Computed example of a mutant assay.
Amino acid sequence: MSTSFDKFQKRKLISSYFSVTLSIALILFLLGTLAFVIVNSQKLVNHFKESLQVNIYFSATAKEAEINQFQKSLAMAEYTKSATYVSKEEAAEKHMKELGENFVQYLGDNPLQNSIDLYLKADYVTEEQLADIAIELKGATFVDEVAYNIPLVSMLNDNVKTITYYMLIASGVILLIAILLINSSIRLSIYAKRFIIKTMQMVGATKRFIRRPFILNNIKLGMIGAIIAIAGLTACMSFLDKKYPNLELLNNIPVLAGIFGGIFIFGIIISWLSTFFATQRYLNLRTDDLYY
């Protein structure tokens, strides 16, 4: 009979440990994901900004030597990420593939112009700086037009400000929820042992002596939960890095180490604090109050 009861108690204890560890792991995974998004948000924003294309079209009278010299000077400009020359024949071929028909044969002539596809560094993708760059580029007599999507630039910068604002609010809310959920999980596990705590206190054990094994045990669970969360984050980031290699998500080792270290330390601290206050609560209760 006692053996069956011991097995039941052991299964109950393991189940309690498992639920606490899983709760901590899931919440730390969520926090780690949020931290990863916040840290890499600027990189994502820069990626979209640097994908904005500025088309520089040359007049029909522009000489090849002038265009080559212009492209070289453009490549050396502080705002340039890349500058690729596109001849009107290459542009026509690209358009024919997109349209699925030979419009040059239909028109009898190629109406397109020689051009350069310019991509700017993220810091220069603002309405004001793009306007200044366009004026500078139009200063060359053989440049016919400088075109880019003005509404897209405005929308991109406005959305960045809005997303950053809401992300900060979401971070605070999620952090608060994480603390409350981890605290709740640990308090429930301590609640199941409230009579053991009170019994130990009644036989003369000090509060510090009673708290110590609970704190150490839950710190271990917090560490295990943090390790599980870190493993999950690593797997997710590896998947994203393979799918979007241009973002270079795994290249910044110090940032990754900071996020993983922060998750591990947070798991330990919140487990320690939650256990301390949960055990302290039952240590301060009268025996009669344990039943409510």
Rank of each mutant, 00 (worst) to 15 (best):
M1S: 14
S2E: 15
F5D: 13
K10Q: 15
S15F: 13
Y17N: 06
L22E: 00
S23F: 02
I24M: 04
L28Y: 00
F29I: 07
L31Y: 00
G32S: 05
L34H: 07
F36C: 10
F36H: 06
S41E: 07
Q42A: 13
K43E: 06
K43P: 03
K43N: 11
K43S: 10
V45F: 09
N46K: 07
N46P: 02
S51G: 13
I56T: 04
A60N: 15
A62Y: 03
K63S: 15
I67S: 07
Q69R: 14
K72F: 09
S73V: 11
A75F: 06
E78P: 05
S82K: 14
A83N: 05
T84M: 13
Y85S: 08
V86H: 06
K88E: 09
E90Y: 03
E90W: 01
K94E: 13
H95V: 15
M96N: 07
E98M: 11
E101Y: 15
E101W: 14
Q105F: 12
Q105K: 15
Q105C: 09
Q105T: 14
L107D: 08
G108L: 12
D109P: 03
L112G: 03
S115G: 07
I116S: 02
L118M: 02
Y119I: 05
Y119F: 14
L120Y: 01
K121C: 05
Y124S: 08
T126F: 01
T126V: 08
E127C: 09
E127R: 14
E128H: 11
Q129T: 12
A131Y: 09
I135L: 14
G139T: 04
G139A: 10
F142C: 04
E145W: 01
A147P: 04
L152K: 06
L152E: 07
V153L: 02
S154L: 11
L156E: 00
D158T: 09
T164A: 14
Y166N: 10
M167D: 10
V173F: 12
I174V: 11
L176W: 11
L176K: 11
I177R: 10
I182V: 15
I186Q: 04
L188T: 08
Y191L: 14
K193N: 06
K193C: 03
R194V: 05
K198N: 09
M202K: 13
V203W: 08
V203M: 01
G204E: 05
A205C: 09
K207R: 15
F214G: 00
I215M: 07
N217H: 12
N218L: 04
G222S: 02
M223A: 10
G225Q: 00
A229W: 03
A229I: 05
T234H: 06
T234V: 00
K242E: 12
L247E: 01
L249C: 04
I253N: 04
V255Q: 07
L256V: 00
A257M: 11
A257V: 11
G261L: 02
G262P: 01
I265E: 06
I269Q: 07
I269R: 10
I270Q: 00
I270L: 10
I270F: 03
I270M: 07
S274A: 13
F276E: 02
Y282F: 11
N284L: 08
L285F: 01
T287E: 12
Y292M: 09
